[in-house]
Design a protein around this nucleic acid. Structure first.
Lengths: 134, 134
DNA sequence: CGGTATTTGTACGTATGTATG
DNA sequence: GCATACATACGTACAAATACC
């Protein structure tokens, strides 16, 4: 299933395989994925390589990791609707460290920024906010 | 400047320091940052640790890396304004591998998604798209 | 309460490959 | 061809969080 000689990096192949298995519904949100050690054995690759694949999926927001417990697909979040005022502009970016700490943001969660006609901008956590266009 | 005994991981300390230096304008967009080897020497830490800090800044969209050349602060992009139709909802997420390939997205670039009243959704690259609310 | 096993986190080193100039 | 710089992948050791007994 994973071919070290294919030209595609092994960690990327593993990340793709795991993402496909997740999309296929093999692990529902909240269910624990195989441990690092298990993946090392199952695919016959080094732990460093397994962790690179995991890091990629984390920063893509596909999985979340709990220290000492394991990995899982994130549970869906309750979203807050924010009314986008007329004349505003909506943009997107990744959070600053301060924003990440303020809202306890997981990896791979962007911010959504609403800039009003007056130039004042307000940023919201992207995993629990949607902007309504009235 | 970096204290291995502070309790804060070394790679995170380095990432914070580099981010602060970037925000302070020490390296303008397009200018090359110090090489990995230079950072290893300058801060007296391992290359693995330096690369972890770099990976964090990449997935945060703070820097971009060119293989064989070095690291730099990304240049500003020309943004396309998309008109948000009335009744639409704007949300945010990280791109899929297909979307990353389609638009040649760098690390740490989110997608902005506009879902119409009919339920049809359209996704745009977040580093070159803004949604206008008329 | 303590001890143990499991699991992820941090940090280092080494070797080799690939892209740029 | 050569030097520089980033990319991949393996290994080791120890620390820290969690869960269970």
């Amino acid at each position: 299933m994973i071919d070290p000689a294919s030209g595609v990096p092994v960690y990327r192949q593993l990340a793709d395989v795991l993402r496909a298995r997740i999309v296929a519904g093999e692990w529902l949100p909240g269910a624990r994925l195989p441990s690092e050690t298990r993946l090392v054995q199952e695919y016959g690759i080094g732990r460093t390589t397994v962790r690179r694949a995991i890091a990629a999926l984390r920063s893509a927001g596909v999985i979340e990791v709990v220290h000492g417990w394991g990995m899982r697909v994130p549970l869906p979040r309750e979203v807050e609707r924010v009314r986008g005022e007329s004349g505003s502009v909506v943009s997107v970016r990744m959070p600053t460290p301060l924003e990440r700490a303020t809202w306890a943001l997981a990896d791979g969660v962007p911010m959504v920024v609403v800039t009003g006609p007056d130039g004042l901008a307000e940023a919201f956590p992207g995993d629990r906010t949607e902007i309504d266009i009235p």
